[in-house]
């Protein structure tokens, strides 16, 4: 698939051609991507504005206000999270200690504990 270069008998000019063309293409691809991604939000906004105009709604936001910075989003999300986490049921505010009744079982009995072996007299 190679083009330009005679790979069997290359010389230094070929090396510089590969370097110059290769590096330029890398730049060209990324510059094209930059142009496309710069234009993309503008095109998307254009459509949005057109739709809103059709619906008869007023466009009040300026172009700078259309995008909320990430920090503002994070602050709003944190505030909502904290708010929803603070939602509790109504409580009586009276703290009590309830006595727990346990039915007797030899499995948990202190009488049969290993430490009691010293009291055992045959």
């Amino acid at each position: 698939m190679n083009f330009l270069i005679d790979l069997a008998n290359w010389d230094w000019s070929d090396i510089f051609v590969i370097t110059a063309v290769g590096y330029s293409v890398v730049f060209a691809v990324l510059i094209l991507l930059i142009i496309v991604y710069k234009l993309m939000p503008k095109v998307l906004n254009l459509q949005l504005k057109r739709r809103l105009k059709k619906e008869g709604r007023e466009i009040t936001a300026k172009s700078d206000e259309e995008y909320v910075p990430g920090e503002v989003n994070a602050a709003v999300a944190t505030a909502l999270h904290l708010y929803f986490n603070q939602q509790h049921d109504e409580e009586s505010n009276i703290i009590t200690i309830k006595r727990v009744e346990r039915t007797y079982s030899p499995w948990s009995s202190k009488i049969y504990n290993m430490n009691n072996a010293r009291h055992y007299q045959p």
Partner: peptide
């Protein structure tokens, strides 16, 4: 960028 550069190397060589 590095993938494009690798692609270019393959195209040339």
């Amino acid at each position: 960028g590095s993938a494009v550069a690798a692609g270019m190397m393959l195209s040339f060589l």
